[in-house]
Design a protein around this nucleic acid. Structure first.
Length: 624
RNA sequence: UGGGGAUUGGUGUAACGGUAGCACGACUGACUCUGGCUCAGUUAGUCUAGGUUCGAAUCCUAGAUCCCCAGCCA
């Protein structure tokens, strides 16, 4: 199923190759390979999986915010590995802190992960391993905690959070707790009381007894459970104690049979803890379950990689949340936001994200990707598939003074326009050409600089798919603003084609081609078009002043009233079936745009978002 | 100045003791009914200093720089 690739294999693929070769994780069996009788690709994969080396990955978000493009790398990496090796991929909510987590985020995350194409559902996804919640493992984790207390590897500590912090020690001096040697029976009684809600928040905690002198602070008797009297989105008020990340995470992976637990670099210091907890539970346990402690539990391997960062973009959940809460943007799905919901609404495609993440690779080096690459990945995909349309964003009227030479002056000529020059199969559509048109104001200059190939007094240009026109006059209002550009057209250039050679053999050429839309209200539609630019004006928002707000780009949104060719008024037969339901177009010579979800809403008007502009080598040059 | 990671053109990434390659960008040019696309070409790199070796980006030693860690966050 996975495409053969000549790309070099990144370090995680190499680890898995080696694991598979050594048989480290065993093979898929009837018990965990999935339903072989399921219809289609799901059953097919389940059958194909049997007897093959196990590769089981997961994406474990905390539902305390929306997912962003950084997460896309992790999702695509984990899902991609499962797919490449014919394994399975889980979506698991790491919902161990009721104070921060909400159902809204759970729903949004599920939506975004699905949109990316990482189908975790074993009923529909051939590589789907399932949807899980860490909170469903709380009972098991609690039992493990009791086990560790009985093994003298954990204790209840009655130090306050503040005291624990104070007694943490320094890199070279060990920390202390007066409770680490108390009898197991006492700890067992207290943890039960904590669980029953007999103690207020912060009164005590359960701690692992590891090494108060470790230079790795994570090992200085880390907290396993803290008291939190708060309702949980999944377990309600059942629990008054909640497990900490380190204590919970390895068990979540273990319980789900995860083989490769992939996380980001900052968790490297936590790996000893990940291993210590599982090893501690396994101490005294046996392969066949004989003995006092029962059967050994599965021990996945944690692997860390560098997260994805971009220039001009902020990806900290805390700051994204702040932008939403303080109204710097309209919401988590504001098209300027780097959230998956935001860039989806902006018009980005999952294919672009897939291509980009594939492109930047997987390493342990903290790299920062130039946003241009994100934009380019999007252009590259959209260029291949987006249907072309004509739209004038800043209209000025163009009047063809000799239109009546070719017939009635109010006649409409229907021109053939190519839908996608990159894809002949997309065919053509008809666009109405009339005596009065709109062209882009910036496509005309009274005193053009050298190399300005567009319209100017006396100059001739091609109206794309229309006619060649030559400017003969300009009409201005009192303020000197151009109201109308008067032109004559050449009937021999219908469709925008070159005219036949003159009798003496010379071929007339035109340098510029500009787009246009009929000015006749019956043959055009209007729309609000939102032109988005970067949310931040500096490469590293917040670097200068310490506050990212200072680097907000005041021009991140420009709203214009545009006039569009009529085909944009409704879905056309020539449009692709976008799998995610979003209708995307290229507005010729402008860029890529998509219909906003609020389009045709209460106001009834069309509403487009600019996803990304086309590259513009003229704009670059003309600015100097 | 404790511990854990990392360092190859402007950016990202390969080379796993044997020709430093690829992609993006930038710059030239060609082509073009989108100043888009496409095509061709140019540009530019092994953090430093020693050592091992016939041969080092790769191994060793010392150093430099950057990132992470003292939440009852994840």
């Amino acid at each position: 199923m996975s495409e053969p690739s000549d790309r070099p294999r990144h370090f995680i693929q190499q680890i898995i190759d080696a694991d598979n070769a050594s048989g480290k994780w065993g093979v898929w069996t009837e018990r965990d390979a999935g339903d072989p009788d399921a219809p289609g690709a799901v059953g097919e994969q389940a059958r194909a999986r049997l007897g093959k080396p196990r590769v089981h990955t997961r994406f474990p978000p905390e539902p305390n915010g929306y997912l962003h493009i950084g997460h896309a790398k992790s999702i695509l990496l984990n899902y991609g590995l499962a797919k490449e090796f014919g394994g399975r991929f889980n979506l698991r909510f790491d919902d161990t802190n009721p104070a921060k987590e909400e159902q809204e985020f759970v729903d949004a995350i599920i939506r975004d992960v699905k949109w990316l194409g990482a189908d975790f559902d074993p009923k529909t996804g051939p590589y789907g391993g399932g949807l899980f919640f860490a909170s469903n493992y709380f009972d098991t984790m609690y039992a493990y905690a009791i086990e560790l207390i009985r093994k003298a590897k954990a204790y209840v500590c009655e130090l306050s959070p503040d005291e624990v912090s104070k007694r943490r020690g320094t890199p070279t001096t060990p920390g202390t707790s007066p409770f680490r040697d108390r009898p197991a029976s006492e700890s067992e009684r207290l943890i039960a009381e904590m669980k029953e809600g007999k103690h207020p928040n912060g009164a005590m905690s359960v701690r692992a007894r590891i090494d108060m002198g470790s230079p790795n602070f994570n090992l200085r008797d880390p907290v396993l459970y803290r008291i939190v009297h708060e309702a949980h989105h999944n377990t309600g008020t059942k629990w008054c104690i909640y497990p900490m990340y380190d204590w919970a995470h390895g068990f979540e992976d273990s319980l789900e049979g995860i083989t490769h637990s992939i996380c980001t670099l900052e968790f490297e210091n936590h790996r000893p803890l990940y291993d210590w907890f599982i090893n501690s539970v396994n101490e005294g346990r046996t392969e066949d379950g004989s003995g006092a402690w029962g059967k050994r539990i599965h021990h996945p391997q944690q692997i860390e990689f560098a997260k994805l960062l971009f220039t001009y973009i902020i990806l900290s959940k805390r700051n994204l949340r702040r932008m939403v809460e303080e109204g710097m943007v309209t919401g988590w799905d504001d098209p300027r936001m780097p959230t998956l919901s935001g860039i989806r609404r902006r018009g980005y495609t999952r294919e672009a994200l897939q291509a980009l993440t594939e492109d930047v690779g997987v390493t342990k080096f903290d790299s920062v990707i130039d946003v241009l690459r994100l934009e380019n990945a999007c252009r590259e995909h959209l260029n291949k598939v987006a249907p072309r349309r004509m739209a004038v964003l800043d209209p000025v009227k163009l009047v063809i003074t000799n239109w009546s030479d070719g017939g009635a002056s109010d006649r409409v000529e229907w021109m053939d326009a190519v839908n996608n020059p990159e894809d002949e199969s997309k065919g053509t559509r008809k666009i109405p050409f009339t005596r009065e048109l709109f062209i882009e104001r910036e496509d005309f200059m009274e005193e053009p600089p050298k190399k300005f190939f567009r319209l100017a007094p006396g100059a001739e240009v091609r109206l794309r798919y229309g006619y060649w026109v030559r400017c003969t006059a300009v009409k201005k209002d009192e303020s000197g603003r151009i109201e109308e550009i008067h032109c004559t057209y050449d009937p021999l250039t219908r469709g925008g084609d070159n005219p036949p050679p003159a009798p003496d053999g010379t071929v007339r050429k035109v340098k510029g081609t500009i787009h246009w839309v009929s000015a006749d209200p019956r043959h055009s539609v209007h729309a609000e078009v939102r032109l988005y630019d970067r949310l931040f004006a500096t490469e590293e928002p917040g670097k200068r002043t310490g506050n990212f707000v200072d680097d907000l780009n005041p021009n991140s949104l420009t709203v214009v009233n545009a006039v569009l060719e009529p085909a944009l008024g409704g879905a056309g037969d020539d449009e692709p079936r976008w799998e995610d339901g979003i209708r995307r177009f290229q507005f010729e010579r402008h860029g890529y745009f998509c219909l906003d979800k609020d389009s045709g809403g209460t106001s009834g008007g069309l509403l487009f978002n600019r996803t990304v502009p086309l590259k513009d080598s003229w704009g670059k040059e003309s600015k100097g």
